[in-house]
Design a protein around this nucleic acid. Structure first.
Length: 286
DNA sequence: CTTCTTGTTACTGA
DNA sequence: ATCAGTAACAAGAA
């Protein structure tokens, strides 16, 4: 499940590898993942190149060099963007089970071929991800829907406090709401709440001043640390430098149900909260 | 066979 | 307006 740290890692890798490469071909084998008219999509991309790649929440935004257009890529739950140059594989997605060193494979729905013969593959087992080309206005409208960016300078304690003001939803649902705070998914929501010793069912309006401070601090710290470890979901993935995404080893509650809590030894509980499988320690989270 | 998995949107009803 | 709950999307694991 690519969340902010995983998408950030992919974005950084792609920025260092594919900028200004000329796109010589776009091969689409599953048209429904392209949310444009396919002819338009191909016409814009052919002979174009990516001038920059950015991220907002979990959305990847590729600026195109020719024409004022942007390629948006959302990986949803099982999407991957994998760049391959010769035998060298540079940027990956998650889910080792669909990961094979041979591309395209049965989950490859689209790929770009660049003029140096390197290729960028979009793979997606569940086919929920998408690619779409938008103009500046459409991009602006899309970006309006995203809330505070946790690793940006806007994510101050003051701004975080005003975001919480007059809200009543439970804190788990709050963390998952992309319109309020962008980029947190199920894994990091549970990890942040565990680190903050706050129960996921707590209503926002019951949070104490020190709990809000703790929440703010841990959102930043955990996401930052996960980016440093190249995310959680690349466990079998090895990049060009032989590095692994290894935040998986750092998880304290996600997928740890029935195991003892690493802080207090109590049992990690799993319950359905805000429509998601939610793990927490009923002893140290209050 | 059933149930669970999760990002996002859409929809219902309170 | 705000919030909770659920279905839908799809494929695979258990």
């Amino acid at each position: 499940m690519p969340e902010l740290p995983e998408v950030e890692t992919i974005k950084n890798d792609l920025n260092s590898k594919i900028l200004n490469l000329k796109i010589s071909q776009v091969t689409v084998s599953l048209p429904k993942i392209v949310k444009n008219d396919l002819t338009f999509f191909q016409n814009i991309l052919n002979n174009n190149s990516f001038s920059n790649i950015n991220r907002r929440g979990k959305l990847i935004i590729c600026s195109l060099k020719n024409g004022n257009y942007f390629l948006l890529v959302h990986l949803k739950m099982t999407g991957q963007l994998i760049y391959q140059k010769g035998e060298e594989i540079i940027a990956g997605g998650h889910n080792e089970d669909q990961f094979s060193l041979s591309f395209p494979n049965k989950h490859t729905h689209l790929f770009f071929t660049f003029s140096d013969q390197s290729r960028l593959f979009f793979n997606d087992l569940r086919q929920f991800g998408y690619l779409t080309i938008v103009d500046q206005d459409q991009l602006n409208n899309k970006l309006k829907l995203y809330g505070l960016e946790p690793l940006s300078s806007d994510f101050t304690l003051k701004n975080f406090r005003s975001l919480l003001h007059n809200r009543k939803k439970n804190v788990k649902a709050f963390l998952l709401d992309q319109n309020l705070i962008a980029g947190i998914g199920n894994i990091y929501a549970d990890e942040v709440l565990f680190a903050s010793e706050i129960l996921p069912t707590r209503s926002i309006d019951t949070l104490q001043t020190d709990e809000i401070r703790e929440l703010h601090k841990n959102i930043k710290a955990i996401l930052k640390r996960a980016v440093k470890y190249r995310g959680t979901t690349f466990n079998n993935f090895v990049d060009a430098n032989g590095q692994k995404g290894s935040f998986l080893e750092k998880l304290r509650v996600y997928k740890k149900e029935k195991e003892p809590c690493s802080k207090c030894g109590g049992e990690i509980i799993k319950k359905r909260i805000a429509g998601r499988g939610t793990r927490f320690c009923s002893e140290c989270q209050r």
